[in-house]
Amino acid sequence: MVAITYIEHNGTRHTVDVVVGKTVMEGARDNGIPGIEADCGGAFACSTCHVYVDPAWVDLLPAKEAMEEDMLDFAYEPDPVRSRLTCQVKVTDGLKGLVVQMPEKQI
């Protein structure tokens, strides 16, 4: 288990334990944390699992694939550096303490 902090757009913080091997999206969904909709269930088809990764963590995550870059390009207010699709980020021991922030809305 790895502790991950999800911060809603209104500032509400949720720190939960997520099993290694799950995705950051599944960690939010399984704990009922609002703000990550994940409509396609992690199929990499919808972009409604968008977050801004805390600046301190950006470089510690595996790099984005071209496909993820493309989907984020037209997500809601993407940040070229901090934006990620959480269904593409697998939880590893190295992510203990990860902090992500949800956008105002998912489109």
Binding site: S47, M67, D70, M71, D73, F74, A75, I107
Partner: peptide, 11 residues
């Protein structure tokens, strides 16, 4: 294989 076209069209 063109998520950008999809996202733009959807909007």
């Amino acid at each position: 294989n063109d998520p950008r076209a999809y996202m733009v069209a959807k909007r």
